[in-house]
């Protein structure tokens, strides 16, 4: 976990490999696709020249909220907005990869600037059990990784009696690096051919390494003496581990191909 970029890259390459293999020469023998191992839709239909099943899911809570006014204010704390599940037709299980990212930049008239970057990635392996023709229950194990960083800059300029100025520039940089894993469960429903809706819950143990750095530069000008510049730095690091439950309140719209 020391090099998160490597891990994410590997996770994506892993998912990418499945696409890459699709481009290889296909075996043309007809084969029967068994019941979809993690998410429904595979069904018992026959497909030609297909070695891999892919399911791409997009978190659709906001979309649904726009369409249907649900009287539901439960917080959606699932950070993944895109997930990809794939399996070889001969496999009993399915690989799962999910990704979420948020970025925001804010700036106000008082001299406050903030940048937020929040990345969440998970990968894992799971199985599924069909519940009738339309429903399916999935379960499996995941490894999760998250990285959140926030930078803020605040500039305060205070003019005081006598013509002096007291200005302070404060920069904070905080980062949360989290990693862990645990159980996940999903529930999906086939709403059309190759289109599904599903939700998922998870119970992860997550370690988080949090760092905060605050740098303050103060420029004090009393109007007579040379400007006094003072710099102070605060560094803080905390580590914690916690069990984290994600309730099945996020809805995914899933496409099968």
């Amino acid at each position: 976990m020391r090099n998160p970029i490597t891990i994410i890259t590997m996770a994506l390459l892993w998912s990418g490999m499945s696409f890459a293999q699709e481009t290889e020469p296909q075996i043309t023998t007809e084969q029967e696709v068994k019941v979809g191992p993690a998410i429904p839709g595979g069904g018992e239909e026959k497909k030609k020249e297909k070695k891999w099943d892919h399911y791409i899911g997009i978190q659709a809570n906001l979309l649904l909220k726009q369409i249907i006014s649900l009287d539901n204010t439960a917080e959606v704390n699932n950070p993944y907005f895109l997930k990809h599940s794939f399996s070889h037709v001969n496999m009993k299980g399915m690989f799962n990869v999910a990704f979420g990212y948020a970025y925001s930049r804010d700036e106000d008239k008082d001299g406050f600037v903030s940048n937020l970057s929040d990345l969440s990635v998970k990968t894992g392996f799971g199985f599924a059990k069909a519940l009738g023709k339309k429903f399916q229950l999935g379960y499996g194990l995941d490894v999760v990784f998250g990285s959140k960083s926030i930078q803020t800059i605040t500039i305060v300029a205070f003019d005081f009696f006598g013509g002096g100025t007291d200005s302070t520039i404060t920069t904070t940089r905080s980062s949360d690096l989290s990693y862990g894993g645990g159980l996940q469960a999903s529930f999906t429903f086939n709403i059309a051919r190759n289109v599904l809706v599903g939700t998922e819950a998870s119970y992860y143990f997550i370690f988080t390494d949090s760092k905060l750095n605050v740098e303050t530069e103060r420029y004090f000008d009393d109007g007579f003496s040379p400007v006094a510049i003072t710099t102070t730095t605060l560094n803080e690091q905390t580590k914690r581990g916690a069990l984290s439950l994600t309730l099945p309140v996020s809805i995914f719209l899933i496409f099968h191909f």
């Binding site: 970029i5 994410i8 940048n115 990285s147 930078q151 500039i155 300029a157 005081f160 200005s167 520039i169």
Partner: peptide, 27 residues
């Protein structure tokens, strides 16, 4: 996509506002 992720991981530096742009306050 991987390149974008690396960019994300490295973070985006935010530019400091010019001191002159900041409103000055008095008590």
């Amino acid at each position: 996509g991987i390149a974008c992720l690396i960019w994300v991981m490295c973070g985006v530096s935010c530019s400091k506002k010019k001191d002159a742009d900041v409103p000055r306050t008095t008590l």
